[in-house]
Design a protein around this nucleic acid. Structure first.
Lengths: 194, 194
DNA sequence: TCCATTTGTCAACGATTGGTGACTTTTATT
DNA sequence: AATAAAAGTCACCAATCGTTGACAAATGGA
């Protein structure tokens, strides 16, 4: 052993992290197919063969890079009338906050033309979004309500971050919260239309 | 000339149409990068070189295949309270109706990882969606309102047709009209939240 | 029938892709 | 200093990509 057992900031771990960082950036910008192993290596300033050496294949590298933890709040503990606002603010935090990585951008951009990524995105929906929304309304409704919420939020992400439609990209956080929050509130709780 | 001037059902025109049909199907299924010229040729049962012979490059073939005419109705002539319902029904007609081709699927699937297609999609927004929605509310608001409508509709298309999230794909037309129609009504007209 | 135009076939090009393996250099322990 | 393991370099393979040009077959007017 080089130093001590509990933490090993070994040389290789730093390279490994550099590769993963470069991969996350490029997958988020160009998607799975658009980012080549050579591109990743170039951004990490290493040899392309090292990418395969540390991660055994491009698929495995993508799997490591596309880890998504939405960290959705427990909707059962907050004010029932604030669910929509909570969801849209959390959405903005995920996509524009400094803490959370580009995981969702990676997954969304890749899922369109890559079946493997699409399945991972459906997993995020089934394992993270749907369970959280189950307690916001009739549990028998959970899938439908989670699907409606996702359709609005993924559409917003598409227009604002991927396609960059000028009017949508220019919206302020306040505007987004005020206009889309109430829609999410209705979708999430299953309330009838006006 | 072979036959007469006005219509020329020449041999080559049929081949040309076969290629374009095959290209539309494959671009809609796998996007610009995912569909190769050889795939298109195989589906059209011809030689790959013919694809280049009739359309000079893959870019040009894509341009011909990705023509989108939403044929949105004039919102100024219909009942003001029925705008949301009209929009969502027209959306379903575009995506599931027999008449309109897979143009939007082609464009949406390709625009994610292909800058060229993304620009074409922004053109559709600027030239077809935004002008129609201008008359549905305050014209100074047109871009914002059109952007919000697009975010919901593109998100629905993504979840239902591209990602195929089970709960969203399972929604009936009536359910979609009833739940999303009112949201589009609010977005399109610029009405305040509840 | 002759012949020019159209239509289609075939092999190959240069570039890029994911991936492999032999090799050299660095590192750190004995 | 000697040496074994780790870390990094390099050349290359097989496949696929868009695209090209030389060639053969079909077509139809003269």
């Amino acid at each position: 052993m080089t130093t001590n057992q509990p933490n090993k900031p070994s040389k290789s771990d730093r390279t490994r992290a550099q590769i993963l960082d470069a991969a996350r950036q490029l997958f988020a910008e160009h998607g799975y197919d658009g980012a080549s192993i050579r591109d990743v290596a170039a951004r990490a300033s290493i040899d392309p063969a090292m990418v395969i050496r540390y991660f055994h294949s491009k698929d495995e590298l993508f799997t490591r890079a596309a880890v998504v933890d939405l960290q959705l709040p427990e909707l059962g503990t907050i004010d029932r009338a604030a669910i929509g606002e909570t969801l849209i603010k959390h959405f903005l935090e995920i996509w524009e906050g400094p803490a959370s990585g580009p995981g969702m951008a990676i997954l969304l951009r890749s899922a369109i033309s890559n079946g493997f990524a699409a399945e991972k995105l459906r997993d995020v929906f089934a394992n993270q979004v749907r369970p959280v929304l189950a307690v916001a309304g009739n549990p028998a409704d959970a899938g439908r309500r989670a699907g409606l919420v996702s359709s609005q939020l993924l559409g917003l992400a598409m227009c604002r971050y991927l396609l960059r439609l000028p009017p949508v990209a220019a919206l302020s956080h306040d505007e987004i919260v005020k206009t889309i929050g109430p829609v999410l509130q209705r979708y999430a709780t299953g309330a009838d239309a006006s």
